[in-house]
């Protein structure tokens, strides 16, 4: 089951990138070009992704095991100091 969800998650991620237009390097560059003809699309991609993921990831952060019983493999380090 973990293998199935891993594959589906990757598939959804890829379809999302395509739909968002982010498979095109020029569109990503157009977001980074503040002084040119600026395309704010990438900000909406991140905003849309975070809006959906913030609830489930908060749940995941507070649990030791996933819904399928796998251990949570989240990075322990959250701070940027003391590497």
């Amino acid at each position: 089951m973990l293998k199935v969800t891993a594959f589906i998650a990757g598939l959804l991620f890829g379809l999302g990138l395509l739909l968002a237009g982010m498979a095109n390097p020029s569109k990503v560059l157009a977001f980074l070009d503040l002084a040119g003809a600026w395309d704010p699309s990438l900000a909406l991609v991140m905003g849309g992704a975070i809006a959906v993921a913030i609830g489930p990831l908060t749940w995941a952060r507070r649990h030791a095991r996933s819904l399928l019983g796998a251990p949570m493999q989240f990075p322990a380090k959250r701070e940027w100091t003391g590497a």
Binding site: V45, G47, A49, A53
Partner: peptide
């Protein structure tokens, strides 16, 4: 882009909550 982002968020959620 918003819809694609939402799909990416769904994928990240599934991988986190499931795996």
């Amino acid at each position: 882009s918003l819809a694609g982002g939402a799909l990416i968020g769904l994928a990240a959620s599934l991988f986190a909550v499931g795996n």
